[in-house]
Design a protein around this nucleic acid. Sequence first.
DNA 1: GCAAAAGTGTTACTAGTACACCCATGC
DNA 2: GCATGGGTGTACTAGTAACACTTTTGC
Lengths: 222, 222
Amino acid sequence: MGTVAKEYYHLVEATACLYTTQHGHVKVLLVKNEEEPYKGYWVLPRKYVNDSQTCYQTIYETLVCQFHFNHVYLEETFSNSNPKRLPDESLISINYLGFVNDYELEKHTEELNMEAKWFDIQELPKIGYDYQDTLDMTKQRLKEKLLSSEILKQFFPSDFTLPEIQKVYESILDKKFDRRNFRKKFISLGLIEDTNDYDIKGTGRPAKLYRFKENIEIKKLF
Amino acid sequence: MGTVAKEYYHLVEATACLYTTQHGHVKVLLVKNEEEPYKGYWVLPRKYVNDSQTCYQTIYETLVCQFHFNHVYLEETFSNSNPKRLPDESLISINYLGFVNDYELEKHTEELNMEAKWFDIQELPKIGYDYQDTLDMTKQRLKEKLLSSEILKQFFPSDFTLPEIQKVYESILDKKFDRRNFRKKFISLGLIEDTNDYDIKGTGRPAKLYRFKENIEIKKLF
DNA sequence: GCAAAAGTGTTACTAGTACACCCATGC
DNA sequence: GCATGGGTGTACTAGTAACACTTTTGC
């Protein structure tokens, strides 16, 4: 490719909007920023990409090594290459949308020299740099993703109740469903099976626990 | 952000899989590669990104200035950051999926010092570098895009016939539709209007010409 | 026994599918 | 007048939407 002028070289980082669910609430992982500018603000987990790894490998390793998640599902969303997003130099971000099931962060964050926390997507703290835009756009993408069964298994904990999964859909798609019709539809899709266990944690009548079947077909859900 | 080692800086290019339709056939724009390696092979239109433009601006200007399209609809798809894709150095591609309506290239390509051509997506030539992967993945994305009305207006020429649009859907979604049901569905969506003109080019009975309405709602089509 | 949350079944309506015949043009 | 491709209507089926009462638990 020959020699290319310096202005064509860019610093590149991989970022992730990593989601999980807790009792029907959708949460996203944020990290406290300890450097100026935006010191004390919350930002996305991120890492600079070096010339021997893909962006995917970079963010995957960052999430697995720093936070010790067993398995992280990740897919690329979009880049941010606005040259004016930082005062001093250009930085291109490649963003990923991700899910994890095991959301117990507490045991790991102590070992780290960083603060990291799950935030309910309805109650986000003050976000540093331009990552609020990334969060907004990725949430939109998450919405589209949930319309198909493609990523369901990655997103939902192995055992879940139908009211729980309904709450997730309602919060992300921003609409209410009739409980009976939601059940009927979800069950008739043939993607889930009864575990014969019950969720005893809630107040009121215990809900049945379901799990997704081994290999689920890709279907439109809504 | 402080000083960062050289291995974190990358050459970045923007590429496009730019589509158009001609009489129900879907075509993609390719450019003949004049440099080694892969000299004589066909590649995607592309340009290195400098530090004063976004990737979007880079590819948009490339397409508009080189090929004189009036309007190009573009949306980002995914990146390719495999460090081993080129023998000598790392190159990150940010790819875009695009549509144009005015497919008359011939009048412009003479002015250019390059060969550029529309290829039917069923009959692609030998593709250089790893752009065949990009084409394959972008075609998949195009398929998903056509399931919603979001990009219909960008994709289809202002006046079109229903058999024409049906052929496009059949070729991209890889399935056949019943003519009567396709009409019924498409018309009942309320997105198109009759122009009261007829397409006289074909053999057989002339087909009615339709156009998309001014502001169309985003709907699921299939 | 009362509040809280989950489970269940029926009916009406809407959208999708399957299918056969007639119509306008070019040669 | 015949081959080519385009336009139209009807009956059936499946999916979606609306709706009220009963069940299980904790306090």
